[in-house]
Design a binder for these strands. Structure first.
Lengths: 234, 234
DNA sequence: CAGTGGTCTAGACCACATG
DNA sequence: ATGTGGTCTAGACCACTGT
């Protein structure tokens, strides 16, 4: 029997199981039939059932334990997954027209706080870029970014007046590790000015540090406009 | 050949591949050998290699396309995964001693903003609970929660003086859907008081709405203490 | 067209946790 | 002690897509 005829595939099984959970047929805490029985019900091998249930467990819907069996999770320990879209995509998804503007671009020795944060040598060269992302003419995000010159020598000749530093980096250097942090900060004078907020206003802020095999590439701080919410459903 | 002797398992393969990526042996954009060749290298079946590579692709390290092969992702489109731990666990993970305190518990008709948010009938009954979570004697989180009585009738007799409403809910009602939102808000008088902040201070805030099969169960707003950061690495 | 990953089968042994 | 999920094998056919 091949898999593209009327046979049940692991995706069909996932769909069916999910439907039973959402419809309430399998309430939270319900113990599912074991893999062998489900294999009979779906007329496929246990391997296929196993894959379906394993993925549903990965996604946080089921809990599986040897001997105890598989049950519907009542209080999903599910991880929240936030897609971190590119600013442009996010603006357009909200129905706006994306516009980029460079604020300043300057070649400087890394300040002490940055050296400490990224484990740089004192006074290592860095490119400091500040820029704005708009939705139409409404400020959407103010970006304050440092790029480590030793890790990205090409940045000395880069021009960020048309292409944003994030897009430029993605095209130029790969990276292997990312640390992403969310916090609430207070708008300082420049952020407040660019985002058109009173100074001291709460601002949702994301910090992103990127490495290429243990070499720090960039540190970016992104200040979002008033009212920004980061939402996920699961 | 069985899988627990010295044979390579899919986890070994994942580890090895990840090591090669992180060490730079397989730079971003590198094309990996095909599954058959890797199966020979690791002396296992293609099925096993497939599982390892498939999972690494799910986790955002690789990109796989038929005919084109498998390559190392240069700019991972990876989703950020935030584990949302229970407050108690989070406090203890940071080395603190967790302490809970009830602030107020009151049986009220749902206010208009809540009815709108959860699609309730006007004036539907709700339980309003406010409480504090401490790390030692330091405020950690202020929680402001509404529980929909029609969805959770038992809440009429619940007593939140010792057990927090979140723990109580987890033990009492299952839920199937969650919406989680992060934002930066301004500390109002009561949040500021409980968190020991100046009024108007930026506060990292999480909102959580929970449903059981389309019936809204609870709305919770959690205000974190000053300096709170939510971090993930990937 | 041909090469790559995607999936399924049928069977096996094993690890683990519960009763 | 035993039932459940966890994993592997060996082989097969298929789906997609780049050349």
């Amino acid at each position: 029997m091949t898999q593209n005829t009327e046979t049940t595939s692991y995706k069909d099984i996932k769909r069916t199981v999910l439907r039973r959970i959402r419809s309430g047929e399998w309430q939270p805490d319900t113990l599912l039939p074991n893999e062998q029985d489900l294999a009979v019900e779906f007329s496929c091998t246990r391997t296929t059932v196993n894959r379906a249930l394993r993925e549903l467990a990965d996604e946080g819907f089921l809990e599986r334990r040897r001997k105890a069996g598989t049950r519907v999770l009542s209080a999903p320990h599910r991880q929240a997954r936030f897609t971190i879209p590119l600013v442009r995509d996010e603006v357009e998804a909200l129905g706006g027209t994306y516009r980029y503007a460079l604020v300043s671009q300057q070649f400087l020795p890394a300040p002490e706080w940055l050296s400490a944060r990224l484990a740089l040598q004192t006074g290592q060269a860095a490119m400091h870029v500040r820029c704005m992302h708009y939705s139409g003419n409404t400020p959407f995000q103010f970006e304050d970014r440092w790029i480590v010159v030793d890790s990205v020598p090409q940045v000395k000749d880069a021009d960020f007046s048309a292409l944003g530093p994030n897009d430029w980096l993605v095209q130029t250097v790969p990276f292997t590790n990312v640390e992403l942090t969310f916090l609430a900060s207070r708008a300082d004078a420049s952020a407040a000015g660019f985002l058109d907020l009173p100074e001291g206003e709460p601002v949702f802020t994301a910090e992103r540090i990127t490495w290429l095999q243990d070499k720090p590439v960039t540190f970016a701080k992104m200040y979002f406009a008033a009212g920004y919410r980061m939402t996920t459903q699961f």
